[in-house]
């Protein structure tokens, strides 16, 4: 690449980086708008089936996972607050806790999914075919939306891990921390989407 040709000064526009990130987060919301719209339309048509299917989900795990993600959002915010004060080590600890909480969320999700799959309730499964139409769609949307969200959790963990490496190597520091801040913003998005998915899928019955 032509380093001499790179306009390095342009890469240091803090407000531009933040604006770009916010616009990207807007597109992520758009991505989840689709399944939620489908959810609402199908819910209007099959309210009983949706409630019945929803009661089949484990609210306890859903609730624990909500707490886990909310806490991780707090630690993500704290990591940004720490780097602002120049406390690199504390920043790294908070990022580590955030990523770990993300991991716990995924483990819980794994047990939830495999529980359903063991009962044949998954697209293509034995029990799935026998479900009333509305319930099948509910679970179809459930697997799609939580699966897509799970991918975002993984992406968020990766982004935070990269931010941790950058922090440890000093590229992210007290003066220039926008990369970490954007990673944390992404993590908040992952959290917010879950805040919508949780009541939609777990609490309607």
């Amino acid at each position: 690449m032509n380093e001499t040709f790179e306009k390095t000064a342009l890469h240091r526009d803090y407000a531009a980086s933040k604006l770009g990130m916010w616009l990207f987060l807007l597109t992520e919301l758009g991505l989840f708008f689709g399944p939620l719209l489908l959810y609402v339309m199908h819910d209007i048509r099959h309210p009983e089936a949706f409630h019945a299917a929803s009661s089949g989900l484990d609210r306890t795990i859903g609730f624990v996972n909500t707490l886990v993600l909310l806490t991780s959002s707090l630690t993500a915010a704290l990591s940004v607050a720490s780097i602002r004060r120049g406390k690199t080590e504390l920043t790294l600890i908070f990022i580590f806790v955030t990523v770990t909480l993300g991991g716990i969320f995924l483990v819980n999700k794994y047990f939830e999914w495999t529980g359903k799959i063991a009962h044949g309730i998954y697209p293509g499964g034995d029990a799935f075919a026998g479900l009333p139409p509305g319930e099948a769609v509910f679970y179809g949307l459930y697997f799609f939306a939580t699966g897509l969200h799970g991918l975002h959790v993984i992406a968020g963990m990766l982004v935070l891990a990269i931010a941790a490496v950058l922090t440890a190597s000093g590229i992210v520091n007290k003066r220039d921390f926008v990369k970490l801040e954007n990673a944390a913003l992404y993590w908040h998005l992952v959290d917010i989407i879950w805040i919508f998915l949780f009541p939609f899928f777990y609490l309607i019955s």
Binding site: M41, H42, R45, G124, P133, E135, V137, G140, F143, F144
Partner: peptide
């Protein structure tokens, strides 16, 4: 790939959506 059924009338889905 998975047949989640949201657009498939056979599974209660709706192609109009």
């Amino acid at each position: 790939v998975f047949g989640i059924g949201v657009f498939d009338p056979a599974k209660g889905g709706d192609p109009i959506l």
